[in-house]
């Protein structure tokens, strides 16, 4: 049994030697990819200006360090993401509760919301919010971005919460009932403590998605990292350098969260 339950192909053994060979192959492969890009760019007379990049991170003026445009953009991205995380959790929680409630209109409302979000593109939702809702409610760009992303990601969070709660076995509910717990106590002492470790990894994954999707607010000119990148490119034509730098910053953000998720997953797996 212990053998059969292990995932298929987990057991490929890699000898030290083939590990070295593969790493070398990989490095050569990646180097040739880079070469192709660089060579191609040089062929069309692209002027590489990597030396100009640092000034977009920080500037030194009269002995003091000021953040550059990319860092300012990153600040906006982080700001936006943090607001969204809070609102998204709230939206997700309310939606999930409504969906699991025994109220008719609550279920209807949450279902309509979920289907609407799932079946339209994020970009179209953003245009809708920007062109239609923000004039109606008189909201500025930044908050339009926050609300739109919250609206979008909230649907995913709702499903994560719902499936987390439902993954707690029925027997657990019944055992709670049998020792005379109220519905609320059942949630609080039996279900939620078991559901939270299950929900944590996908929730963190959702924050990663939030960071990625937040770049879409550049379409409505919120001054986030992507917008700053686009603006700098418009000024300087350093397309490759800026895009790679911007992508690199996002990668650092998301990959570090990714690693956190993997770590979380391993930890919960050990405990269960």
């Amino acid at each position: 049994m212990s053998v059969n339950r292990k995932a298929l192909f987990r057991y490929w053994k890699v000898s030290q030697q083939s590990r070295v060979v593969a790493t070398l192959q990989y490095l050569v492969f990646m180097a040739s990819l880079v070469w192709v890009v660089v060579h191609g760019a040089n062929q069309m007379g692209y002027q590489w200006q990597w030396y100009n990049i640092p000034e977009y991170f920080y500037k030194v003026f009269e002995g003091e360090i000021y953040p550059g445009r990319l860092i300012k953009g990153l600040g906006v991205t982080v700001d936006l993401t943090l607001w969204c995380v809070g609102f998204t959790l709230l939206t997700g929680l309310i939606t999930a509760l409504l969906r699991m409630s025994d109220s008719i209109s609550g279920r209807w409302l949450s279902t309509i919301y979920l289907e609407l979000v799932r079946n339209t593109p994020l970009l179209v939702q953003l245009y809708l919010f920007y062109f239609v809702f923000s004039p109606i409610f008189g909201i500025d760009r930044f908050w339009t971005g926050v609300i739109c992303l919250t609206f979008y990601e909230g649907s995913f969070v709702a499903e994560i919460i719902r499936s987390g709660v439902q993954s707690v076995e029925r027997g657990q509910w019944e055992a709670g009932d049998s020792i005379g717990l109220t519905r609320w106590d059942n949630y609080r002492y039996i279900v939620i403590p078991q559901a939270i470790p299950i929900m944590l990894p996908p929730l963190t994954g959702q924050i990663i998605n939030l960071i990625k999707h937040s770049s879409i607010v550049s379409v409505i000119a919120v001054a986030d990292l992507t917008t700053e990148g686009r603006n700098i490119i418009a000024d300087t034509f350093m397309s490759f350098e800026i895009w790679f730098t911007v992508a690199g910053i996002y990668l650092v953000l998301t990959l570090s969260l990714s690693m956190f998720v993997t770590w979380l997953e391993n930890r919960t797996r050990v405990r269960t």
Binding site: H213, S215, Y250
Partner: peptide, 11 residues
């Protein structure tokens, strides 16, 4: 999966 779709498409 770790770059924003927008940035990926632009690059």
């Amino acid at each position: 999966r770790n770059t924003p779709p927008l940035v990926f498409i632009f690059i």
